[in-house]
Design a protein around this nucleic acid. Structure first.
Length: 544
DNA sequence: CTAGGGTTAG
């Protein structure tokens, strides 16, 4: 195709219209060989160094072929690249998801400054996006001041965003934000996201409240931030408010900001964590009523929500309907089965996934190991742990060790569990010792339980729950002096156990129950119902 | 050609 066209065009309209020719060819091409042909053609015409054409080649290479190495190669062959060429290659690197490309972006920017090319305000947002340390953001910031581009709102917003994303940079982000003379919805959203990213939900919500204009990304930022920090009911409240405001705007003068796919994904995640099946189903309906494209994000969020709300069949249905299952889809489904204690299901999905040529990642193995733990498949679980390391070259993370210890501990294989703990090249965390302790309690290994409980207290001395567990272990061992000691320490420290809590959604209302609380007037009634269910008197569960 | 929002994990 290309050859014919090249020959034809060469003789007819190429000379007066080389630009049009190049554009036409690039529009119709989708392969690197086309690019190479065009490149050599341009070279024979003496245009190998013509910035204008090289710019087009690089843009084609990055945007349509997503071939950054080749684009960089083209770039490297230019003797004196101009600002356009630098911008093209820097944009490509800064928007790439590849791991260390931000370093390349940065060195290209430095190279640009060294060749004494004056930056423009278009390039700074890209450079800032690639500045992942506070020091670097500061350097670019002063560069921006020096070159006189600080007073572009877009550049300022980029600074707010970049400062808020680096370690201990939130103060600088707030300062930058305060210095802005014109703030818009984007700059506000950048700051809100910044606070929520570091877990300062209070400040994030406060800034959000101050916003006079809120668009869909602003709502999404605040809802996702709440969800990611475990503030699920706050997230749901905001989601409801968003719908309410949008409905009130309908037909009015202001623009209604209806939830989009992103909003729905965040809200579904909150529903899953809070077991709000009714709302989750309503959102599922909303997705269809509004004809949303069920992309892999929405699909995953639905699978996860149904799984967490106890509807394994519905989760599977949504999963089956997903046309382009990505890694996360498979992980979510495996996790659903693990959550429901169906290890065969999890393993079947895992095998299907591998069969489809999808490479499992570290999350996959967390789900798989949990499934094995709940199904008591010790050998198979250990096999998967080894498979992860040797076949998939995944370095076990602390979570994987937690799963493995849980697997071995529940099976009563404490020697192996301790070997694993000793062989870890990282400090065991609460999950590791907690899993071991749990296994010890099941199998009555009080000596080892004492050891694990002491480790837990070392890690988190303020957590009264661990102290109580240690006291109970001493009780089992008949060490009554030790029991008294632990209790005295607990009282001195004023550390208490966080009461166990569960909740259920009935008629759109979430009812919460704490253990051992008797403040509800219906305590006695609840108490006897519970007794009739489990056959004996247990801790009183009372609604708060 | 430039700025803010997305799922899974004991």
């Amino acid at each position: 195709m290309l050859q014919n066209q090249t020959r034809y065009q060469t003789h007819t309209q190429m000379k007066p219209n080389l630009n049009e020719f190049v554009t036409t060819i690039l529009n119709k091409s989708n392969h690197i060989n086309h690019l190479k042909q065009l490149q050599s053609h341009l070279t024979t015409l003496g245009h190998s160094q013509t910035h204008f054409y090289v710019f087009k080649l690089i843009r084609f290479c990055t945007l349509k072929l997503s071939n950054l190495p080749y684009a960089h190669q083209i770039f490297n062959h230019i003797h004196s690249p101009n600002i356009y060429l630098f911008t093209a290659i820097i944009t490509a690197y800064s928007s790439s998801q590849q791991k260390n490309n931000h370093l390349l972006t940065f060195s290209l920017f430095k190279k640009m400054l060294n060749t004494s090319i004056a930056p423009n305000h278009f390039i700074y947002p890209h450079v800032l996006k690639s500045s992942k340390e506070r020091f670097l953001v500061g350097c670019v910031h002063s560069q921006i001041v020096k070159t006189g581009f600080l007073y572009y709102p877009v550049v300022q917003t980029s600074l707010v965003d970049s400062y808020s994303k680096v370690l201990r940079g939130l103060g600088d982000a707030q300062k930058m934000f305060d210095e802005m003379s014109v703030r818009n919805v984007v700059s506000f959203t950048a700051l809100v996201s910044g606070y929520l990213r570091v877990g300062d939900v209070g400040s994030g919500l406060k800034v959000f409240d101050e916003m006079v204009e809120r668009d869909v990304p602003a709502w999404n930022a605040v809802i996702s931030g709440c969800t990611q920090n475990g503030f699920f009911s706050e997230g749901i409240r905001l989601f409801r408010e968003m719908i309410f405001v949008a409905a009130a705007c309908e037909g009015g003068f202001c623009k209604g900001n209806k939830p989009n796919q992103v909003t729905v994904v965040c809200a579904l995640s909150a529903c899953g964590h809070a077991s709000m099946l009714q709302l989750g189903k309503w959102i599922h309906g909303y997705v269809y009523r509004h004809g949303f494209v069920v992309d892999s994000f929405v699909s995953n969020a639905l699978v996860d929500m149904y799984g967490k709300c106890g509807c394994l069949e519905l989760a599977r249905k949504v999963f089956n309907m997903d046309q382009c299952k990505g890694l996360t889809s498979w992980n979510s489904m495996i996790n659903c089965y693990a959550l429901h204690g169906k290890c065969e299901g999890a393993i079947a999905v895992f095998e299907q996934m591998v069969g489809w040529g999808v490479r499992p990642d570290e999350v996959t193995f967390i789900g798989l190991l949990n499934a094995c733990t709940h199904g008591g498949l010790v050998e198979q679980g250990c096999g998967y742990f080894n498979m992860m390391i040797s076949e998939y070259k995944i370095e076990p993370r602390i979570e994987h060790y937690g799963c493995l210890i849980d697997l071995l501990g529940r099976a009563g294989r404490f020697d192996e569990a301790m070997d694993v703990v000793k062989g870890m090249n990282m400090e065991p965390d609460e999950v590791v010792w907690g899993s071991l302790l749990n296994g010890c309690k099941v199998h009555g290994r009080n000596d080892l339980a004492e050891f694990a409980a002491k480790k837990l207290i070392e890690i988190d001395p303020q957590n009264g729950g661990y102290g109580i567990m240690l006291a109970n272990i001493y009780g089992e061992l008949g060490k009554w002096d030790e029991v008294r000691n632990v209790w005295c320490k607990l009282k001195q420290q004023k550390s208490y156990k966080v009461p166990g809590c569960s909740w259920i959604e009935v008629d759109d209302q979430v009812h919460q129950f704490y253990s051992l609380d008797q403040s509800n007037p219906k305590t006695e009634e609840l108490y006897s119902v519970l007794e009739s269910l489990i056959g004996y008197r247990s801790e009183v569960m009372v609604e708060m």
